[in-house]
Design a protein around this nucleic acid. Structure first.
Ligand SMILES: [Mn+2]
Ligand SMILES: [Mn+2]
Ligand SMILES: [Mn+2]
Ligand SMILES: [Mn+2]
Lengths: 219, 219
DNA sequence: AATATAATTTAGACAAATCTAAATAATATT
DNA sequence: AATATTATTTAGATTTGTCTAAATTATATT
């Protein structure tokens, strides 16, 4: 199965959007890939032909087992390269996505398995997202919840839901990164803002919009 | 100047074939890129339009200053990735070319400069070929000659002319790699074969075909 | 100089990936 | 149920990179 870069990008987007959902819409894919719905319909026909998606017109799109297998390979490559960029080349977590978006299309099993080994077979990427192994399996990890829904007082940052550079840079500025321990000081009902404290720093307040996108685990 | 992968591959091939030559032929490029002369003519028109090559029909092709600048960037990326694969991911020098052929097209100045730094700013790749710096300059190195033309008795392997997997695997098998010190025991005029000796190993003889492709420097 | 051979270009075609504009189907609103 | 809105598909076009077959130009051989 020899896929083009465009086909790989579609497969990955469908995988990302499917998450739970039975089926993904043409428009959702178009928006995700910054393209037009008509282009998605064209590609849907090709991917169906290759048996990577189930698709009947007007009925939405979903990955076949083979499509999912391929999606997981691409996700693995993407996230491993992100690890490489952050851990070995000292990139910041807000700079790596675009570059990994290209590196993920270099197809060589040997390359990616060696890279994984070189990085110590990491199981999460710089945004806290899990990295599937060579067989497409995720190692079991603690379930994450967003900071706005958490109830414990002490929490550890373990991921970000929104991965826009805007949010990541904001978190950089506030000293919030993966592994950061946070104490919840107060929750304000009025606007759902949260007052938090990190180590020796003075407490500060973050908006609901931010707390919804910080994924945490209890210690 | 935003180039496609195909355009980058053409630019790099032209750079490689030009080497000394005033001009490169349509057929030579087609052969190098494993494509058809008609396709080369088509691409020549596009690259001329973008002012990356000088081209008048039937008169051959040569890079402009801008074309050469871009070629050197691609060569730099290719060779740095080869270094990475060999030094960090333990690939053998005969396995890295195809993978680097893809990695070289990931365009990010920051990426490539960080990678160079991570590798200790190497000046030669795993085949002994020089790596231009970010400004496209080569550091001066000792002039290499092929083993069949060398006169000194003790020599050091510093490169390979032919970089086919066939030759590289042969050299692996014989224990000849970059940095290997060779003593020339005898040169046989009949078939221009050369008897050589490496360290503690018994002497052995290599054909002219091989010795022509081993690039050496005196110590 | 005439002819043969080799190199190169042109003409016309195709596949991939995209687009716009128009048509059609599904869904929501009155 | 009729109508309006939204989602999706189709039709037709464009760009990029490639190809084959035929035409043209350059070079070599007699
Ligand atoms: Mn991508
Ligand atoms: Mn990530
Ligand atoms: Mn390449
Ligand atoms: Mn090389």
């Amino acid at each position: 199965m020899n896929l083009t870069v465009a086909e790989e990008n579609y497969i990955k987007s469908i995988y990302k959007l499917q998450d739970g959902q039975a089926v993904v819409s043409t428009n959702a894919i178009a928006y995700e890939l910054d393209t037009k719905p008509a282009s998605v319909t064209d590609m849907a026909k090709k991917l169906k032909e290759k048996k990577l998606i189930d698709y009947e017109k007007y009925q939405g799109i979903s990955l076949t087992a083979e499509g999912k297998r391929i999606a997981l390979q691409i996700v693995r490559r993407h996230r491993l390269w992100e690890c490489f960029l952050v851990e070995k080349l000292s990139f910041s977590w807000n700079e790596v996505h675009e570059i990994a978006e290209e590196l993920e299309h270099v197809r060589s099993e040997k390359l990616i398995n060696r890279l994984s080994e070189f990085l110590g077979n990491p199981t999460t990427d710089p945004h806290g997202d899990p990295i599937p192994d060579a067989q497409g399996k995720f190692s079991k990890t603690k379930q994450l919840i967003s900071l706005d829904k958490a109830t414990a007082r002490r929490l550890e940052v373990a991921g970000v839901a929104d991965q826009s550079s805007a949010l990541l840079e904001f978190l950089n500025a506030k000293g919030i990164r993966l592994g950061t321990q946070i104490d919840v000081i107060e929750r304000y009902e009025f606007d759902n803002s949260v007052e938090i404290k990190i180590r020796n720093q003075p407490a500060f307040t973050i908006s609901e919009q931010v707390s919804k996108n910080i994924m945490v685990k209890t210690l």
